[in-house]
Design a protein around this nucleic acid. Structure first.
Length: 232
DNA sequence: AAATCGATGCTCT
DNA sequence: GAGCATCGATTTT
């Protein structure tokens, strides 16, 4: 038996008087979906983040499903459960944030099946673009002078920079109750507007999971990530 | 426009 | 010690 380790946060009295994140918030029942169903359903929803006094919001336009023990591309392949991927095994709607290449972050949301999660790959900025640009500029040599709005959140680690999502602060947060990161209902994306492809950055050759159609994005949307050419 | 490459450190074997 | 669910700068067509 592993004890739940979900983190929570709280608001000061003055904050809670004026700050109402719960009007359109997605709750437990929403997240209690199978991985692929959650990944497609999340398209059009808002990912919301409170950084100090600023609210940042982005419409989810690209996701990927990581299925769990039978998915060779998943951190939970064959039931692997470690300190890093613990959040994948917590309740649906838990944030799974991990560090990659020593310097970047990826943000996921756990789903219903054991060890499954949805990677958020791109957002269309909806609120707080100035702060997004500021956060995204820090890493760059040009100080952000050449950074365009469409590039604020068009990649899994770009959106983590833009929304100040770090493993230390966000991993294992319960998105259904947190007041610093949550999701809101926003827009309906029709099935005919959803494109499906293999996932990005999954080293292919001969492995069946490399070709599974588990990446989903909003057709024609300008904020979807620019993906590298697949190896053959 | 596309291909190549370096950065940078944690996680797992 | 190897590999990584990436990004941005640099180099090449």
């Amino acid at each position: 038996m592993i004890e739940p380790t979900n983190k929570t946060d709280s608001l000061s009295a003055t904050e809670s008087k004026y700050f109402k994140p719960n009007e359109n918030r997605l709750r437990n029942e929403y997240f209690d979906k199978n991985c692929v169903e959650l990944a497609t359903s999340l398209l059009g929803k808002l990912l919301c983040r409170k950084v100090d006094a600023t609210i940042l919001k982005g419409k989810i336009v690209e996701t990927e499903a990581y299925l769990g023990k039978d998915d060779g591309a998943s951190h939970s392949f064959q039931g692997r459960r470690t300190t890093r991927n613990e959040a994948m095994f917590l309740d649906p709607g838990t944030a799974y944030v991990y560090k990659i290449y020593g310097m970047y972050h990826c943000f996921n949301i756990s789903s219903k099946e054991e060890g499954s999660a949805v990677l958020i790959r791109a957002l269309e900025p909806v609120a707080g673009q100035d702060l997004m640009k500021e956060k995204r500029s820090k890493r760059r040599k040009d100080g952000g002078s050449k950074l365009k709005g469409r590039d604020y959140c068009n990649g899994p680690s770009k959106l983590c920079d833009a929304l100040n999502i770090t493993k230390e602060e966000i991993n294992c947060q319960d998105l259904t109750i947190s007041n610093t990161i949550w999701l809101e209902d926003y827009e309906t994306v029709l099935p005919t507007d959803i494109a499906t492809t293999p996932r990005v950055g999954i080293d292919g050759s001969g492995k069946k999971w490399a070709d599974l159609p588990l990446r989903f994005y909003v057709q024609k949307n300008q904020y979807v990530s620019k993906t590298p050419k697949r190896k053959t």
